[in-house]
Design a protein around this nucleic acid. Sequence first.
DNA 1: TTCGGTTCTTAACATACATCAATGTAGGGT
DNA 2: ACCCTACATTGATGTATGTTAAGAACCGAA
Lengths: 197, 197
Amino acid sequence: MEKQNLINFLSKNLDFNEDKISLLLEDCQVKNLKKHEFLLQESEFCQFTFFVEKGLLRQYSIDEKGKEHTILFAPENWLVSDRESVYFNQPSSYFIQAQEESDVVMIGNNFFEILSEKIPEFTSFNNKLLHNHIRHLQNRINMLLSASAEDRYLQFIEMYPDILLRVPQIMVASYLGITPESLSRVRKELAKKNFKN
Amino acid sequence: MEKQNLINFLSKNLDFNEDKISLLLEDCQVKNLKKHEFLLQESEFCQFTFFVEKGLLRQYSIDEKGKEHTILFAPENWLVSDRESVYFNQPSSYFIQAQEESDVVMIGNNFFEILSEKIPEFTSFNNKLLHNHIRHLQNRINMLLSASAEDRYLQFIEMYPDILLRVPQIMVASYLGITPESLSRVRKELAKKNFKN
DNA sequence: TTCGGTTCTTAACATACATCAATGTAGGGT
DNA sequence: ACCCTACATTGATGTATGTTAAGAACCGAA
């Protein structure tokens, strides 16, 4: 089934059997994306939360000088959304784009509310997702405040070893907050110190 | 009453009258802090969420090189906590310290659950708090990824004009992710361009 | 009031990282 | 198989920011 990953994800966390979840998910569309296709662009209102069944999404912003800044990489089994846009009803300042041919489940903005009504325990699960998100952002801030280019890169490959292989370095650089040239040099340095990869 | 700010804060957001809220808050202690007193230190488990009735708190971390990184300034009517420690039951990697003589309401970790039971609408309010938190962190990441020292400073005084006057520059610098010397230079430059403040 | 510490400023110098530019390389589309 | 475009690498150079160090201003405690 095309939503199998999402169903697993929910049933694992909700202790609610697969069939029932599958039923609840009936309203959610699945969308197939070609590489480089957009799910959201700057100034649009984010209408969905996206669950990645297959492939890889990237969320990024573009600043006044035209530079891209990668906010998030979302491989299989990740949720992506612009919560700010969804929750506060603002035009988004982000782009969400498929980096590979991908399948995503489009979760409508009211879907979580509906789930909350039908599955009381969902509220606390949603809470957990939010806390996870906060933890993730907090760690990133810490990294940006304290770590050098090399340290950031090392942290990155530690945390997302596979993503390194799936996206161009230029995007990893924009995630780390450095230029692609700098990243290339960092890698060269690490190679000297006989660092694999 | 010593918890008046918190009562206002909740009654404004919950549409629940002051007396009832006041009653619910009875279990929460109020603590008076002298300047530089700690509410939380690294490796401790964060047991409370703190609401600032009066004064100013600062949350910060210290990295391997001994450098401080300010995570958050919390003046009157702000909530502070290490959600990661509270929610995931981990030792904290942060310090929370009073920058001024302060009064805080100590909100126990189960208090929000209790409130949820007594005030159904509280769940969605809590949700809003979490989303606000996420928005705040997200904006900060954007800033760290894209803005120069000067831009960061300008954003900071725009956003927190009063805090600048209440804490030493050294701490503002550690919030912005730059050295105090750099901050001093930035300010000098801005002064040249006849920038007030 | 004086003392001692913290903070702020300034300057000279160091360095990590950015920028610019050129070349090389690889993958996708026709 | 070819070209085209995007990406990676490298070197020369520039710049913002860090580092170190010193003195000045400030402030709280004795």
